[in-house]
Amino acid sequence: MGQTLLRFGVVLGLGLGMAAAGSHTGTSWQGIPVFALCALLAFTIQWLAFLPAWRLQTEAFYDLTGALTYLSVTWLAVALTPDQNALGLLLAGCISLWALRLGSFLFLRIRADGKDSRFDRIKPYAGRFLFTWTLQGLWVVITAGCALAAITSGRAAEPGGLAITGFALWLFGFVVEVVADQQKRRFRHTNGEERFISTGLWAYSRHPNYFGEILLWLGIALMALPTLAGWQWATLISPLFVFLLLTRVSGIPLLERKAEQRWGQNPDWQAYKARTPALVPRLRARNTVPRA
Rank of each mutant, 00 (worst) to 15 (best):
T288H: 13
A271F: 14
A150P: 08
G13E: 03
A180R: 00
G173Q: 01
V10M: 07
R128P: 12
S198G: 01
M1P: 10
C94P: 11
L90S: 02
L76N: 06
G251S: 09
S250F: 10
A203D: 03
K184Q: 00
G93T: 09
E177K: 01
A53L: 06
P281V: 03
W133E: 13
V178M: 11
I164C: 10
N191K: 12
L14A: 02
L80M: 03
L201G: 01
T25W: 15
S23D: 00
A271K: 06
T132V: 14
Y125E: 13
F61T: 10
R118L: 02
W233I: 07
Y210W: 11
L240I: 12
F50P: 14
Y204N: 07
S238C: 06
R109I: 10
V249H: 09
R55W: 06
A42M: 03
Q182C: 15
A271Q: 15
T25Q: 13
T81Q: 08
C94E: 13
G160V: 02
T199V: 15
A39D: 00
S198M: 12
A156M: 09
L102K: 07
E194L: 10
L40P: 09
T199C: 02
L102M: 06
F129G: 10
F243H: 13
S153H: 04
K184F: 11
D116I: 00
F61R: 13
S28I: 12
I252M: 06
H24K: 00
G22W: 01
E158K: 05
L255I: 02
T58W: 14
L244T: 12
I164K: 08
L89N: 06
K123P: 14
V289Y: 12
D120T: 01
F196R: 11
F105W: 08
L97G: 05
D113N: 07
S96W: 05
A53H: 13
F241W: 05
L51M: 15
Q136M: 11
R257C: 10
T69Q: 06
T227C: 06
V289H: 11
W54D: 15
G127C: 15
L16F: 02
A285S: 15
L6G: 03
C94A: 13
G264S: 08
V176R: 06
L216A: 03
L89I: 04
G219V: 09
P124E: 05
A79T: 00
E59R: 04
S28R: 14
P124K: 11
F243Q: 13
T152Q: 08
G160W: 01
L201S: 05
V280H: 04
A229T: 01
L97P: 11
T65E: 09
L56W: 14
L240C: 14
G137F: 12
A285V: 01
V280M: 08
A163C: 14
R186G: 11
A157N: 04
L218G: 10
P159M: 05
T81C: 10
K184A: 11
L12E: 03
V242D: 07
R248I: 05
C38L: 06
W47N: 03
I220S: 00
T58G: 10
G2S: 05
W75L: 01
A99S: 08
L201V: 03
A53W: 06
A259V: 13
R55K: 10
F196D: 06
L246H: 14
L216G: 02
Q183G: 09
F35M: 05
D83M: 00
L41V: 03
V73S: 07
F129P: 10
D63M: 11
A274V: 03
W98S: 05
V11G: 07
